[in-house]
Design a protein around this nucleic acid. Structure first.
Lengths: 227, 227
DNA sequence: CCGGGTCCTAACGATTCCCTGACGGCTGCA
DNA sequence: TGCAGCCGTCAGGGAATCGTTAGGACCCGG
C-alpha cells in the first residue's frame, strides 16, 4: 500500500514517514503542490494525503487537478478548521478532511477506512489467460508451459497497462484513458509507446503474439481484455 | 438519494430530516439500533447516518452487523470525541466520523463526498436486439447464435451512429441530426456514406439485413431504432 | 568505466477504416 | 412505358492506425 504525503513542513513529513512506514506503508513525499502532481504521475500511490497551504500550487488546486484524471482517495490534513475550507476541499473531490493537530490513531483509522474499499472491491487476485496466470496484487505472472511453471517478468509500465486492462474485463479501454491512467493527464496525441508496450505484453502473455486471444485491439478506439 | 438517520434524540432527528429533506434527499429515520437494522433491510438507503449511543443496540454493534452483509456508506455522528471511539467505529466499517456539535455545511459536504463514488458509476443501458446484445458503455456487441456467443466488432463510426439511434429508442432520427452528431455540423446534404454505414450495421446486427427488424429506414426523412 | 535494464523516439510495411463513385432495385408519377 | 428520386450495395483508392524493429537516453549496481 503506497501513500503520497504532500506537506510543506519537513518536520511533519519526517514524522509521518516514520510513523506510517512503521505500519508497513510505502511512503512517497512531496513538499509542494507541483511536486505532488509529479509524484502522483510517477508513483501511482493508493492514497494521497494533502496539506492545503502549500507553495507553488495550493492543495485545493491539487485536488481539482488530480480529480480531472484520477480516482485515488484523497485525505486532506490541514490546519484550517473552518467549515468553509472543509466544504471547499470535500466538494472539489477530497474524500476526508482531518484538522491539525490530529490524533495519529485517528489518522491511521481514517486511512484504513479510505483504503478498505479498494482492498475489498479490487479483489481480483488472480486472472487466468490460458496457460498464463496473472496475480495483480502479488505482481506476479507465471506461465505453465508443458507442465513446467515458469515466471514471467513485467516492467512497472507493463504492470500499469495490464492492470488497467484486467480491471475492466470485456470493456473497451480508450487509448486516451489508458494514457492518462499510466502517464498522467498531459498526454494527448502521441500513442507510439502505447503500441510498443502492448506488443511487449502480448509477447509475454499470449500464446501467439501475432494473433492475440486476450489483449485485443480495437482499431481507432483502444484496447480490450477479453476474458 | 435515500438516507437512513439513526439517532435516539428526536430533536436531532427532526432537525436533520428537515435540513436534509430540503436538499432533496429522501429521509428514513430510526430511534434505536434494532430499528436501524430493520429500516436498512426495508428501505435499502444509499447512505446511513449513525449515532453511537443508542438504546437496544449500540451504534458500534449496528456497524458490525451491517458490514456483515452490506457495503452501504456509513457516516457516524456522535458526541464522543475521543480518538479511541473514532478508531473503533472506523475499524468496524464506518466510512466517516463527525463529532457533535457539527457544522451542517460540513456534514452535507461529507455526505456528498461519500455518495459521490456511487453516483459516478456510468450506467448506459444494455440494449437487446433479438439474439444480439449491445453494450454501449463497454462498446461490445455479442451475437448469440445457436447457444454460442460470438463477438461482433464495430468500427468507431458505426458505434457513433448506433449510439445515436439506440439512445433514442422508437424515435425518428433525422438524417441531418445523425450527420451533425457523427461528422460535426459542417455536413449538409451529402448522405452517401450514411447509407453505407447503416447497411454495414444491419449486416452485423440484423438477422436478415435485407428485411431489417430494428434499424428501420423512413424514406425521405431518416432512420429509426424500433426496440 | 562498463553492462543490464527500462523508457522513449523514429521509421517501415501491413492492416484497418473512411469515403468516393458507380450501379441496380424500388416506388410514384407523367 | 419512360423517367426521376431515393435507397441499398459493391468495389477501390487514400488516409489513418497498428505492429514491429532498431537504436539512443537515462538510471543504477557492479
Amino acid at each position: 500500500m503506497k501513500i503520497l504525503i504532500a506537506d510543506d513542513d519537513p518536520q511533519i513529513l519526517r514524522a509521518l514517514r516514520i510513523t506510517l512506514g512503521a505500519r508497513g506503508y510505502d511512503i512517497v513525499t512531496a513538499e509542494d503542490g507541483a511536486a505532488a502532481i509529479n509524484a502522483m504521475i510517477e508513483h501511482h500511490p493508493d492514497l494521497v494525503m494533502l496539506d492545503l497551504g502549500m507553495p507553488r500550487l495550493d492543495g485545493q488546486a491539487v485536488i481539482e487537478g488530480l480529480r480531472g484524471w484520477s480516482q485515488v482517495p484523497i485525505l486532506v490534513v490541514s490546519g484550517r478548521t473552518g467549515a468553509a475550507d472543509k466544504v471547499q476541499a470535500l466538494d472539489a473531490g477530497a474524500d476526508d478532511y482531518v484538522t491539525k493537530p490530529f490524533s495519529i490513531d485517528e489518522l491511521l483509522a481514517r486511512i484504513r477506512a479510505l483504503t478498505r474499499r479498494l482492498a475489498t472491491t479490487d479483489d481480483e487476485p488472480v486472472v487466468l489467460l490460458g496457460a498464463v496466470t496473472v496475480d495483480l496484487s502479488a505482481k506476479q505472472v507465471t506461465r505453465n508451459a508443458a507442465g513446467v511453471a515458469e515466471t514471467v517478468r513485467l516492467t512497472p509500465t507493463e504492470w500499469l497497462i495490464l492492470g488497467v486492462l484486467l480491471r475492466n474485463p470485456g470493456k473497451l479501454v480508450t487509448r486516451q484513458s489508458l494514457l492518462t491512467e499510466v502517464w498522467g493527464p498531459h498526454h494527448v496525441g502521441d500513442t507510439g509507446y502505447l503500441r510498443l508496450y502492448v506488443g511487449q505484453l502480448r509477447k509475454k502473455l499470449e500464446a501467439d503474439a501475432a494473433h492475440p486471444r486476450y489483449l485485443l485491439t480495437e482499431a481507432g478506439m483502444g484496447y480490450r481484455f477479453s476474458p
